[in-house]
């Protein structure tokens, strides 16, 4: 199968690419960022998804499947730019896919779309409303992109679309949303709150994406990792200390004193858990995380 991966230069996307290439698929990649040491059997096109050269990749290479991993968070793009990438980029993937005969599209989304709130349940099912933007405005474009991808199921029913809502990814690459929150010597938390964090090893996440492609999943699926752990345990096991800040000071202290910066509203995700139920995905693909919560945290701590 010929598979195009958008956002291929990201840490997780590279792992997916290598796995697919090893499994004998033809892998193409599209990204604005380079992948300097990409394996020879993976062809990477440096182009912006929303620009003409990207469409040419679809037109000339006619991939059978597209894995859209080209959405970004506050970490890599400013607000306006992020909206353009996440919303227009996602639309471009589906429109080009439809026009150039792509049979299958996977949208790689995030479990944070469910949002964190005091009255939200643990173990969200796929039918729970994605309320992420209600407490955390910086997630609104990711929620919209996720819902747009879901709408492909009725907009382009002849295309096999799946939306994967994956928990935080953690591993030796030390990349990703959670990794950047954990990057400093201290992990800022809100005093009096110790929510569960749900994450999985990056190799497990890459494996899950490959399984979803091979199983030709159709629909929206949660992809969960091993048992979630409280942020205090996560910090301790990776060899860091939490810095519990009273809530009124939390936002002011971020970005200073070596603490990571987080957008407004992020405190809801540091106060309340976002935990998902991945049993539907597991039942349909046979997926089971190979890395326990302990092994995942330790692989992040000691990347060597």
């Amino acid at each position: 199968m010929k598979v195009l991966i958008t956002g291929i230069s990201g840490a997780l996307a590279r792992k997916v690419a290598v796995r697919l290439a090893t499994a004998g698929h033809t892998v193409l990649g599209l990204d604005r960022r380079p992948w300097p040491d990409a394996p020879d059997n993976i062809e990477v096109f440096e182009a912006d998804l929303r620009k003409r050269p990207a469409e040419d990749v679809f037109r000339l290479h006619r991939p059978d499947a597209v894995i859209h991993m080209g959405t970004v968070t506050h970490l890599s793009a400013a607000t306006e730019e992020r909206y353009r990438i996440n919303l227009h980029g996602t639309r471009a993937v589906f429109e080009h896919g439809n026009q150039y005969g792509v049979g299958q599209t996977l949208f790689i989304g995030r479990h944070t779309v469910y949002g964190a709130a005091p009255d939200a349940p643990l173990y969200h099912s796929e039918s729970d409303p994605p309320l992420g933007a209600s407490t955390y405005p910086a997630l609104s474009d990711l929620v919209a992109a996720d819902l747009f991808a879901g709408s492909a199921l009725w907009q382009w029913p002849e295309m096999c679309t799946s939306v994967l809502r994956i928990v935080y990814v953690l591993g030796p690459s030390q990349r990703g949303t959670l990794a950047s929150y954990l990057s400093g010597p201290f992990v800022p938390t809100v005093l009096g709150f110790d929510p569960l964090f749900h994450f999985m090893h990056e190799e497990d996440a890459a494996h899950a994406i490959v399984l979803a492609l091979e199983a030709r999943l159709r629909g929206v699926y949660n992809v969960a990792g091993p048992q979630p752990v409280p942020i205090s345990v996560l910090a301790r096991v990776i060899g860091k200390r939490t810095l519990p800040l009273p809530e009124p000071l939390f936002h002011r202290a971020l970005g200073k004193f070596g603490l990571p910066w987080l957008p407004r509203g992020a405190e809801s995700h540091v106060k309340y858990p976002v935990v998902i139920d991945g049993s539907r995905f597991e039942a349909e693909t046979g997926f089971a995380p190979e890395w326990s919560e302990k092994a995942t945290m330790e692989s992040f701590r000691w990347p060597g």
């Binding site: 005091p118 009255d119 939200a120 349940p121 643990l122 173990y123 099912s125 809100v190 005093l191 009096g192 709150f193 110790d194 929510p195 569960l196 409280p230 809530e247 858990p273």
Partner: peptide, 20 residues
């Protein structure tokens, strides 16, 4: 409530939701 909610969740006393 800070602290209180943390203790409740460490004891498995979850928010009163049908899902839970």
């Amino acid at each position: 409530w800070p602290i209180v909610s943390q203790i409740f969740s460490r004891m498995g006393q979850l928010a009163g939701l049908p899902e839970h």
